[in-house]
Amino acid sequence: MGGRSRTNRTPYEIRLNLTALVDVTVLLLTFFMVVNQFASAERVEMPIPRPRESMARDRRIAEPVVINIIHRGPDAAPAYQIGPLAVGSLADLSQRLAVEKRNTPQIEVVLRADRRLDYARVREVMELLGEHAISKFHVVAEVASGR
């Protein structure tokens, strides 16, 4: 009884001041929108080559076909991925490449290879490009800091 009468008498109205929360949230939102590079299924997470005085530029390429060559250990064969699709072997990669080339004759190929790979592994894929009459492509490397 006493408790109830005390509650009834309370003159306060509890309000949550959301201003600071909204401020911080909107700031965080803006930050993430600015710094975000949308994770692309086409770009597998891997250490890419880091050349001295890198000449690599982050230029826009219209609808590139990204080929990833993924390192799986010093003695293991690498894994391949073309676009978002993982392919089991070089033969499968060749088939996919043929399809892409048929669909887009002026195909723009981007070669993303793990920096730890032996050159032989990358050369095999380059030769595959040559077989499909793709003589120009783009090699992915780290952009020099400050560019």
């Binding site: 975000n36 590079q37 530029r57 982050d58 040559g130 783009h138 090699v139």
Partner: peptide, 19 residues
């Protein structure tokens, strides 16, 4: 945005050719 953000090193392209 927190989930999809990657803080990775920026990558670029080197134009390459085969004979």
């Amino acid at each position: 945005l927190i989930v999809v953000t990657r803080f990775s090193t920026p990558e670029g392209y080197l134009p390459a050719r085969l004979p």
